[in-house]
Amino acid sequence: MTSTAEPRPMRADARRNRRRVLDAARVAFEEGGAEVQMEDIARRAGVGVGTIYRHFPTKQALVDELIDEWLADGAANAAEALRIDDPWEGLAHFVRLSAEVMARNRGLRMVFGDIGLLFDENTGHQNRELHDNATRLLARAHAAGTLRADVGLREFRTLMCGLAMTVSLAGPDERRLYADVFLQGLHT
């Protein structure tokens, strides 16, 4: 006999603990990257390690959830950039904002920069909204004649991953400089 009952909803305290774990993990990965230990995350979240493993059976499962959140953040940043009327300024806003996010988020840089997953549709971590918003940003800049014709999404993604690695080694003033040089290379 096959059960058609839907899974029981998570209890309120379990939902809160899960969110606390994710919030603590996000900060820990932003500061320490992939080397962060589950015990450190548990301590930051104020829960036991067993609580983490009840929600995330492996460290990779936790990282995967964070990747999905980071992609959603990127989609929101791209949507914000699309609200800027000038196509070039919208794209430039997205690049500068992304550079700042990457500079302060070691875990995100490690995941996306080292292996070049940003916007990639074949990673198992897909955010259609980020992909579509980035595509729209590029299309608007192309239509306005402000973005090099030979830079498509693939090239943009690769260059953004390189920018992520560059800004990770830079101070705030250098980050702005590197983002501006990056943008000058994209501009027609």
Rank of each mutant, 00 (worst) to 15 (best):
G90N: 08
D64V: 00
R43L: 10
F56N: 07
L66I: 06
A78T: 09
Y53V: 08
R15N: 09
N17E: 15
P7I: 03
T58N: 05
R26N: 14
G50Y: 03
H93T: 12
L82D: 14
A28N: 07
R19L: 15
M38C: 02
A61E: 09
T58S: 02
D23M: 14
T51C: 04
V63F: 08
L22E: 09
R26G: 13
A45V: 05
E69N: 12
A14P: 00
A61T: 06
A76N: 11
A28L: 01
R54F: 03
A28S: 08
L66P: 10
W70H: 09
G50V: 10
F56E: 05
R15M: 12
L66G: 15
V21P: 05
P57G: 05
R18V: 11
R18F: 03
I52N: 04
M10P: 13
G48D: 08
D73V: 15
T51D: 08
G32N: 05
R18M: 11
D85W: 02
A14F: 01
D68Y: 04
A12G: 12
E39M: 01
M10D: 08
D64M: 00
N77G: 14
E31I: 00
I52K: 04
E39D: 15
M10R: 12
T58G: 01
N17C: 12
R54G: 12
E31N: 07
G50K: 04
P9H: 13
G46C: 04
F29M: 09
I41G: 07
Q60D: 14
A45H: 01
R19I: 06
T51G: 08
E31T: 03
Y53F: 15
A25R: 02
G32E: 07
L22K: 01
V63G: 10
T58K: 00
F94M: 12
A78S: 07
G90L: 02
A75S: 08
A79L: 13
A42C: 01
I84E: 02
D23T: 15
E30G: 14
R20C: 10
I67H: 03
F56H: 05
V63S: 08
D23N: 14
L82P: 10
G74C: 06
F29H: 03
R83D: 06
R18A: 14
A72K: 10
L71D: 11
D13L: 06
W70D: 15
N77L: 12
L82E: 15
E39N: 01
E89F: 13
L71V: 14
Q60V: 03
R19Y: 07
R19S: 15
A25L: 02
A81K: 11
R18I: 05
R8C: 06
I67R: 11
L62H: 06
A34D: 07
G90E: 09
A34Q: 11
A24N: 12
R83P: 00
E31D: 09
V21L: 14
R15S: 09
R43S: 11
Q60E: 13
A72F: 03
D85R: 08
I41L: 04
A25W: 04
D68E: 11
R54D: 14
H93W: 12
Q37P: 12
I84Y: 01
G32Q: 00
G32T: 01
I41K: 02
F56T: 05
L91T: 12
R11L: 12
E30F: 01
L66Q: 13
L22D: 07
L91M: 06
L91H: 03
V63T: 13
